[in-house]
Amino acid sequence: MATTETVAGAAGEAAQKGMPQLNFATWPNQIFWLVVALVIIYFVLTQIAMPRIAAILAERKGTIGNDLAAAEELKSKARAAEKAYNAALEQARGEAAKIIAATKAAIQKDLDVALAAADVQIGAKAAESEKRIAEIRAGALEAVSDVARDTAGALVEALGGHADAGAIAAAVTERLKG
């Protein structure tokens, strides 16, 4: 068979071996070098790599823990600041209300004073006006008797009579009284 011949030819003693895994002649060699390799890997890992990685992981855990703690602290600080801000705002609002009330009271007082002054002025003005009106009224009455006398004289003249100033005045005064 071609296959068998090729195997035998290519690998020399391979034909008698079958599976190279079961060629026990190579086992001492394999085991020796395997143990060497494993011992080297063991020392590389336990002496150098693993302590380093453990340190890195611990450091990272510590860093994250610290950062979280710092964040928590900042958060509580922010909360306190917010509380203080709210308190200040409330206080400012109260003060503003107080100032508004005080200002309102002051304005009211000024207003009252001004109103009182205005009332006094208005009263004075009204009294003066009343006096003037009374004067005007008195003047008007006098004027009415004058006009009535003149008119009566003119009427008498027009009717062809002779106006007696004294009689007319007496008559007018008599009528006006009535």
Binding site: V36, I40, I41, V44, L45, M50, I53
Partner: peptide, 21 residues
């Protein structure tokens, strides 16, 4: 076997040498 040792050493030693967080 030697290549495996070298690769593991390189990966684990170089990989942990920076010690970066």
């Amino acid at each position: 076997l030697g290549v495996a040792v070298v690769v593991i050493s390189a990966l684990m030693i170089v990989g942990s040498s920076a010690k970066a967080v």
